[in-house]
């Protein structure tokens, strides 16, 4: 697996803090005894919010916390599109590209963002700040075109709004929406 090489380089940087582990244990407590595995998605989100992505090292620690085999964490993490399995920029712009958003201009918007940041879809800017991704319907179809970044929705987007959004993120003015 090509992932394994990266683990070596990121080892140590994805070590869970006691505080993070406590939050994960709390998530487990929401479910009956013996069914703690149900907390896995919440726990993956917690780890990703902390490190920006999910390393194999993170997933291995989660396996320990949930007392399951590592493969049980990998197979879940790889199924769900919200989880980044490779390092990404500090801010990941996930722009909806599905029908209703396309009707109001998402194709052109995606192109504009790529042009503005000088990256393609799936790429990260050289300064490590922004990654551009596309997403399927984000459940905000009446407010498109839109994007999501760190659990925050930015809706009714135009090129002008993108310009100012990028500046605000660069200045660190926009805090995560949740977690």
């Amino acid at each position: 697996m090509k992932e394994s090489k990266k683990v070596v380089t990121t080892e140590g940087t994805t070590q869970f803090s006691a505080e993070l582990i406590a939050k994960m244990e709390e998530a487990k407590n929401c479910f009956p005894e013996g069914k703690e595995k149900s907390a896995i998605l919440k726990i993956l989100h917690l780890a990703q919010a902390e490190f920006g992505w999910l390393s194999v090292h993170s997933m291995d620690q989660i396996a320990e916390i949930l007392r399951v085999e590592p493969i049980e964490v990998y197979e879940v993490a790889t199924f769900y599109t919200m989880f980044h399995l490779e390092p990404v920029g500090k801010y990941v712009f996930e722009v909806c590209r599905t029908g209703p958003c396309m009707l109001v201009g998402s194709d052109q918007l995606i192109e504009y963002i790529g042009h503005k940041l000088n990256i393609g879809i799936g790429e990260t800017t050289k300064d490590g700040l922004f990654t551009l991704k596309t997403a399927e319907c984000l459940g905000g179809c009446g407010y498109g075109p839109l994007l999501q970044c760190r659990h925050r929705f930015h809706e009714h987007l135009t090129p002008e709004k993108i310009d100012s959004l990028i500046e605000q993120y660069q200045r660190g003015e926009i805090k995560p929406g949740a977690l």
């Binding site: 929401c30 149900s38 907390a39 919440k42 769900y80 599109t81 919200m82 989880f83 997403a135 399927e136």
Partner: peptide
């Protein structure tokens, strides 16, 4: 009553 998130899968 418990609320729990998905992970992005239609």
């Amino acid at each position: 009553l418990v609320i729990t998130p998905g992970g992005g899968a239609y």
